[in-house]
Design a protein around this nucleic acid. Structure first.
Length: 289
DNA sequence: CTCCAGGCGCCTT
DNA sequence: AAGGCGCATGGA
Protein backbone atom coordinates (compact mmCIF):
# COMPACT_ATOMS: atom_id res chain seq x y z
CA UNK A 1 0.00 0.00 0.00
CA UNK A 2 1.49 3.33 -1.07
CA UNK A 3 1.96 6.22 1.32
CA UNK A 4 0.18 8.38 -1.23
CA UNK A 5 -2.98 6.53 -0.39
CA UNK A 6 -5.75 8.86 0.69
CA UNK A 7 -8.67 8.05 2.95
CA UNK A 8 -11.92 9.67 3.85
CA UNK A 9 -14.71 8.77 6.23
CA UNK A 10 -18.21 9.80 5.22
CA UNK A 11 -20.48 10.03 8.25
CA UNK A 12 -23.79 8.78 6.92
CA UNK A 13 -26.73 7.12 8.62
CA UNK A 14 -29.24 4.76 7.06
CA UNK A 15 -26.95 3.98 4.16
CA UNK A 16 -26.90 0.34 3.10
CA UNK A 17 -23.86 0.29 0.85
CA UNK A 18 -24.25 -3.29 -0.37
CA UNK A 19 -27.91 -2.84 -1.28
CA UNK A 20 -27.19 0.46 -3.00
CA UNK A 21 -24.29 -0.83 -5.09
CA UNK A 22 -26.22 -3.99 -6.00
CA UNK A 23 -29.61 -2.53 -6.81
CA UNK A 24 -29.22 -2.46 -10.57
CA UNK A 25 -28.42 1.25 -10.88
CA UNK A 26 -24.64 0.81 -11.31
CA UNK A 27 -22.95 -2.19 -12.90
CA UNK A 28 -19.26 -1.86 -12.13
CA UNK A 29 -18.97 -2.38 -8.35
CA UNK A 30 -17.36 -5.64 -7.29
CA UNK A 31 -16.89 -7.23 -3.89
CA UNK A 32 -13.41 -6.44 -2.51
CA UNK A 33 -12.51 -7.93 0.87
CA UNK A 34 -14.89 -6.45 3.38
CA UNK A 35 -15.95 -3.78 0.94
CA UNK A 36 -16.39 -2.79 -2.68
CA UNK A 37 -14.28 -1.44 -5.49
CA UNK A 38 -14.62 0.23 -8.88
CA UNK A 39 -13.42 3.29 -10.81
CA UNK A 40 -15.20 6.59 -10.22
CA UNK A 41 -14.20 9.81 -11.99
CA UNK A 42 -11.00 8.19 -13.23
CA UNK A 43 -9.89 7.04 -9.78
CA UNK A 44 -9.67 3.55 -8.37
CA UNK A 45 -11.88 3.63 -5.28
CA UNK A 46 -12.58 1.17 -2.50
CA UNK A 47 -15.44 1.59 -0.06
CA UNK A 48 -16.15 -0.12 3.24
CA UNK A 49 -19.27 0.19 5.32
CA UNK A 50 -18.39 0.95 8.95
CA UNK A 51 -20.43 1.54 12.07
CA UNK A 52 -20.18 5.27 11.51
CA UNK A 53 -20.79 5.36 7.79
CA UNK A 54 -18.63 4.74 4.75
CA UNK A 55 -14.85 4.72 4.57
CA UNK A 56 -13.27 5.44 1.19
CA UNK A 57 -9.74 4.87 -0.04
CA UNK A 58 -8.07 6.03 -3.24
CA UNK A 59 -4.51 5.73 -4.52
CA UNK A 60 -3.65 9.33 -5.29
CA UNK A 61 -3.77 12.21 -2.79
CA UNK A 62 -7.15 13.89 -2.65
CA UNK A 63 -7.93 17.27 -1.13
CA UNK A 64 -11.48 17.79 -2.22
CA UNK A 65 -13.73 14.77 -1.88
CA UNK A 66 -16.75 16.46 -3.40
CA UNK A 67 -16.73 14.19 -6.45
CA UNK A 68 -17.20 11.09 -4.29
CA UNK A 69 -19.58 12.68 -1.82
CA UNK A 70 -21.66 13.73 -4.80
CA UNK A 71 -21.52 10.26 -6.36
CA UNK A 72 -22.60 8.62 -3.10
CA UNK A 73 -25.13 11.37 -2.36
CA UNK A 74 -23.73 11.32 1.17
CA UNK A 75 -25.47 14.55 2.19
CA UNK A 76 -28.97 13.41 1.28
CA UNK A 77 -31.49 13.13 4.08
CA UNK A 78 -33.08 9.81 3.26
CA UNK A 79 -35.80 10.07 5.90
CA UNK A 80 -37.37 13.12 4.30
CA UNK A 81 -37.40 11.28 0.99
CA UNK A 82 -39.00 8.06 2.18
CA UNK A 83 -41.44 10.19 4.18
CA UNK A 84 -42.64 11.69 0.90
CA UNK A 85 -43.63 8.29 -0.48
CA UNK A 86 -47.32 7.40 -0.56
CA UNK A 87 -48.50 5.94 2.71
CA UNK A 88 -49.80 2.61 1.45
CA UNK A 89 -49.11 -1.01 2.22
CA UNK A 90 -46.80 -1.82 -0.73
CA UNK A 91 -44.59 1.23 -0.16
CA UNK A 92 -44.39 0.61 3.59
CA UNK A 93 -43.29 -2.96 2.90
CA UNK A 94 -40.72 -1.83 0.34
CA UNK A 95 -39.25 0.83 2.63
CA UNK A 96 -39.14 -1.64 5.49
CA UNK A 97 -37.40 -4.28 3.36
CA UNK A 98 -34.89 -1.90 1.77
CA UNK A 99 -33.91 0.43 4.61
CA UNK A 100 -30.75 2.33 3.71
CA UNK A 101 -31.15 1.94 -0.06
CA UNK A 102 -29.92 5.07 -1.81
CA UNK A 103 -29.77 6.54 -5.27
CA UNK A 104 -26.29 7.33 -6.55
CA UNK A 105 -25.38 10.27 -8.78
CA UNK A 106 -23.46 8.72 -11.63
CA UNK A 107 -21.55 9.96 -14.62
CA UNK A 108 -24.10 10.65 -17.38
CA UNK A 109 -22.27 8.92 -20.22
CA UNK A 110 -21.34 5.80 -18.24
CA UNK A 111 -24.87 5.51 -16.94
CA UNK A 112 -26.53 6.09 -20.30
CA UNK A 113 -24.20 3.73 -22.15
CA UNK A 114 -24.66 1.01 -19.54
CA UNK A 115 -28.40 1.20 -19.85
CA UNK A 116 -28.24 1.14 -23.64
CA UNK A 117 -26.67 -2.27 -23.09
CA UNK A 118 -29.33 -3.28 -20.56
CA UNK A 119 -32.15 -3.97 -22.99
CA UNK A 120 -33.38 -7.54 -22.89
CA UNK A 121 -30.56 -8.59 -20.55
CA UNK A 122 -30.26 -9.77 -16.97
CA UNK A 123 -28.25 -7.66 -14.55
CA UNK A 124 -25.42 -10.21 -14.36
CA UNK A 125 -25.11 -10.10 -18.14
CA UNK A 126 -25.16 -6.30 -18.22
CA UNK A 127 -22.26 -6.41 -15.77
CA UNK A 128 -20.35 -8.74 -18.10
CA UNK A 129 -20.87 -6.55 -21.16
CA UNK A 130 -19.87 -3.40 -19.29
CA UNK A 131 -16.80 -5.12 -17.82
CA UNK A 132 -15.83 -6.29 -21.28
CA UNK A 133 -15.87 -2.86 -22.93
CA UNK A 134 -14.02 -1.37 -19.95
CA UNK A 135 -11.27 -3.99 -20.03
CA UNK A 136 -10.76 -3.65 -23.76
CA UNK A 137 -11.26 0.04 -24.32
CA UNK A 138 -11.17 1.86 -20.99
CA UNK A 139 -8.11 3.80 -19.91
CA UNK A 140 -5.95 2.13 -17.33
CA UNK A 141 -6.19 3.46 -13.82
CA UNK A 142 -3.54 2.85 -11.20
CA UNK A 143 -4.22 0.69 -8.18
CA UNK A 144 -1.89 -0.14 -5.32
CA UNK A 145 -2.92 -3.61 -4.21
CA UNK A 146 -0.66 -5.56 -6.55
CA UNK A 147 -3.23 -6.07 -9.25
CA UNK A 148 -2.18 -4.73 -12.63
CA UNK A 149 -4.68 -2.00 -13.28
CA UNK A 150 -8.27 -1.00 -13.10
CA UNK A 151 -10.05 0.41 -16.12
CA UNK A 152 -12.13 3.52 -16.48
CA UNK A 153 -15.38 3.37 -18.39
CA UNK A 154 -14.46 4.27 -22.00
CA UNK A 155 -15.43 7.80 -22.98
CA UNK A 156 -17.97 8.52 -25.69
CA UNK A 157 -15.09 9.73 -27.87
CA UNK A 158 -13.24 6.47 -27.40
CA UNK A 159 -16.24 4.33 -28.28
CA UNK A 160 -17.12 6.63 -31.17
CA UNK A 161 -13.74 5.81 -32.72
CA UNK A 162 -14.37 2.05 -32.61
CA UNK A 163 -16.06 -0.17 -35.17
CA UNK A 164 -19.25 -2.14 -34.75
CA UNK A 165 -17.12 -5.26 -34.99
CA UNK A 166 -15.01 -4.14 -32.00
CA UNK A 167 -18.17 -3.83 -29.92
CA UNK A 168 -19.71 -7.07 -31.12
CA UNK A 169 -16.58 -8.81 -29.91
CA UNK A 170 -17.63 -7.67 -26.44
CA UNK A 171 -20.78 -9.75 -26.94
CA UNK A 172 -23.09 -6.75 -27.14
CA UNK A 173 -25.16 -8.38 -29.88
CA UNK A 174 -27.71 -6.13 -31.56
CA UNK A 175 -26.94 -3.39 -29.01
CA UNK A 176 -23.54 -2.74 -30.60
CA UNK A 177 -24.77 -0.38 -33.34
CA UNK A 178 -26.99 1.45 -30.83
CA UNK A 179 -24.06 2.11 -28.51
CA UNK A 180 -21.78 3.07 -31.39
CA UNK A 181 -24.21 5.53 -32.97
CA UNK A 182 -25.15 7.03 -29.62
CA UNK A 183 -21.48 7.44 -28.71
CA UNK A 184 -20.90 9.27 -32.00
CA UNK A 185 -23.83 11.62 -31.39
CA UNK A 186 -22.58 12.37 -27.89
CA UNK A 187 -18.97 12.76 -29.03
CA UNK A 188 -19.81 15.18 -31.83
CA UNK A 189 -22.11 17.25 -29.64
CA UNK A 190 -25.43 16.37 -31.25
CA UNK A 191 -26.53 15.50 -27.71
CA UNK A 192 -24.77 17.40 -24.93
CA UNK A 193 -24.79 15.29 -21.80
CA UNK A 194 -22.82 17.90 -19.85
CA UNK A 195 -25.95 20.09 -19.84
CA UNK A 196 -28.31 17.31 -18.78
CA UNK A 197 -28.45 18.39 -15.14
CA UNK A 198 -29.34 22.00 -15.91
CA UNK A 199 -31.80 21.73 -18.77
CA UNK A 200 -34.75 20.32 -16.87
CA UNK A 201 -36.19 16.83 -16.84
CA UNK A 202 -38.52 17.15 -19.83
CA UNK A 203 -36.01 18.84 -22.12
CA UNK A 204 -33.25 16.45 -21.08
CA UNK A 205 -35.50 13.47 -21.80
CA UNK A 206 -36.44 14.84 -25.20
CA UNK A 207 -32.74 15.13 -25.99
CA UNK A 208 -31.93 11.60 -24.84
CA UNK A 209 -34.78 10.13 -26.87
CA UNK A 210 -33.03 11.29 -30.05
CA UNK A 211 -30.32 8.71 -29.44
CA UNK A 212 -30.68 5.32 -31.14
CA UNK A 213 -31.35 2.53 -28.68
CA UNK A 214 -32.73 4.97 -26.12
CA UNK A 215 -36.45 4.82 -25.44
CA UNK A 216 -38.51 6.06 -22.52
CA UNK A 217 -37.24 3.52 -20.02
CA UNK A 218 -33.53 3.96 -20.69
CA UNK A 219 -33.86 7.74 -20.89
CA UNK A 220 -35.56 7.73 -17.48
CA UNK A 221 -32.75 5.61 -16.02
CA UNK A 222 -30.18 8.17 -17.13
CA UNK A 223 -32.33 11.03 -15.87
CA UNK A 224 -32.78 9.37 -12.47
CA UNK A 225 -29.40 7.74 -11.85
CA UNK A 226 -27.17 10.41 -13.41
CA UNK A 227 -29.24 13.54 -13.97
CA UNK A 228 -30.58 13.77 -10.45
CA UNK A 229 -34.17 14.03 -11.66
CA UNK A 230 -36.01 12.17 -8.96
CA UNK A 231 -39.34 12.57 -10.72
CA UNK A 232 -38.10 10.27 -13.51
CA UNK A 233 -39.78 6.90 -13.09
CA UNK A 234 -38.30 4.12 -15.24
CA UNK A 235 -40.86 1.40 -15.93
CA UNK A 236 -39.27 -1.94 -16.73
CA UNK A 237 -40.69 -5.46 -16.58
CA UNK A 238 -40.22 -5.67 -12.79
CA UNK A 239 -41.89 -2.35 -12.05
CA UNK A 240 -44.62 -3.17 -14.55
CA UNK A 241 -45.30 -6.38 -12.67
CA UNK A 242 -45.10 -4.62 -9.29
CA UNK A 243 -47.50 -1.85 -10.25
CA UNK A 244 -49.99 -4.30 -11.73
CA UNK A 245 -49.90 -6.65 -8.76
CA UNK A 246 -49.77 -4.07 -6.01
CA UNK A 247 -51.95 -1.27 -7.36
CA UNK A 248 -54.17 -2.79 -10.08
CA UNK A 249 -54.66 -6.37 -8.86
CA UNK A 250 -58.06 -6.97 -10.47
CA UNK A 251 -57.59 -5.19 -13.76
CA UNK A 252 -56.82 -7.46 -16.68
CA UNK A 253 -55.30 -5.08 -19.17
CA UNK A 254 -53.17 -2.27 -17.79
CA UNK A 255 -51.23 -0.46 -20.49
CA UNK A 256 -47.70 0.87 -19.98
CA UNK A 257 -49.01 4.33 -20.84
CA UNK A 258 -51.60 4.10 -18.09
CA UNK A 259 -48.96 3.01 -15.58
CA UNK A 260 -46.64 5.83 -16.65
CA UNK A 261 -49.40 8.36 -16.03
CA UNK A 262 -50.27 6.80 -12.68
CA UNK A 263 -46.67 6.74 -11.44
CA UNK A 264 -46.00 10.30 -12.57
CA UNK A 265 -48.36 11.67 -9.94
CA UNK A 266 -49.03 8.95 -7.39
CA UNK A 267 -45.52 8.51 -6.00
CA UNK A 268 -44.80 12.19 -5.41
CA UNK A 269 -41.81 14.45 -6.04
CA UNK A 270 -39.29 11.66 -5.36
CA UNK A 271 -41.16 9.08 -7.41
CA UNK A 272 -37.99 7.73 -8.97
CA UNK A 273 -36.65 7.01 -5.52
CA UNK A 274 -39.86 5.15 -4.69
CA UNK A 275 -39.43 3.23 -7.93
CA UNK A 276 -35.97 2.07 -6.82
CA UNK A 277 -37.39 0.81 -3.54
CA UNK A 278 -40.12 -1.10 -5.34
CA UNK A 279 -37.63 -2.51 -7.83
CA UNK A 280 -35.24 -3.75 -5.18
CA UNK A 281 -38.09 -5.04 -3.04
CA UNK A 282 -39.52 -7.11 -5.90
CA UNK A 283 -36.11 -8.52 -6.80
CA UNK A 284 -35.38 -9.42 -3.20
CA UNK A 285 -38.71 -11.20 -2.90
CA UNK A 286 -38.12 -13.11 -6.12
CA UNK A 287 -34.58 -13.96 -5.09
CA UNK A 288 -35.49 -15.87 -1.96
CA UNK A 289 -38.25 -17.78 -3.71
C1' DC B 1 -33.82 -28.67 -24.41
C1' DT B 2 -36.98 -24.13 -23.58
C1' DC B 3 -37.83 -19.69 -21.65
C1' DC B 4 -36.78 -15.09 -20.97
C1' DA B 5 -33.90 -11.08 -19.57
C1' DG B 6 -34.02 -3.27 -15.77
C1' DG B 7 -36.34 -2.59 -24.37
C1' DC B 8 -36.17 -0.64 -28.70
C1' DG B 9 -37.32 0.09 -33.53
C1' DC B 10 -40.09 -0.99 -37.11
C1' DC B 11 -43.92 -2.89 -39.28
C1' DT B 12 -48.75 -3.94 -39.25
C1' DT B 13 -53.76 -2.87 -38.12
C1' DA C 1 -52.69 4.86 -31.27
C1' DA C 2 -51.98 0.31 -30.28
C1' DG C 3 -50.25 -4.29 -30.78
C1' DG C 4 -46.81 -7.79 -32.58
C1' DC C 5 -42.24 -9.22 -33.68
C1' DG C 6 -37.21 -9.70 -34.39
C1' DC C 7 -33.10 -8.97 -32.35
C1' DA C 8 -27.79 -11.50 -30.17
C1' DT C 9 -26.52 -13.66 -26.30
C1' DG C 10 -26.42 -16.42 -22.34
C1' DG C 11 -28.33 -17.38 -17.46
C1' DA C 12 -31.74 -20.25 -15.21
Amino acid sequence: MSRRTSRKAFAVEDYDLAATLNSGQAFRWVKYGEGWTTVVEGRWVTLVQTGKGIEARVVEPVRDWGWLSDYLQADVDIDSITASFPDDEPMRAAVEACRGLRLLRQDPWECLASFILSSNKQITQIRQMVASICERFGEKVKRDDGDEAAHAFPSAERIAALSEKDLRECRLGYRAPYLLKSARMVADGAVDLSRMREMGCEAAREDLLRLPGVGRKIADCALLFAGGYQEAFPIDVWIMKALKELYFPRKRRVTPKRLQAFSATYFGPHGGYAQQYLFHYMRKRAGRA
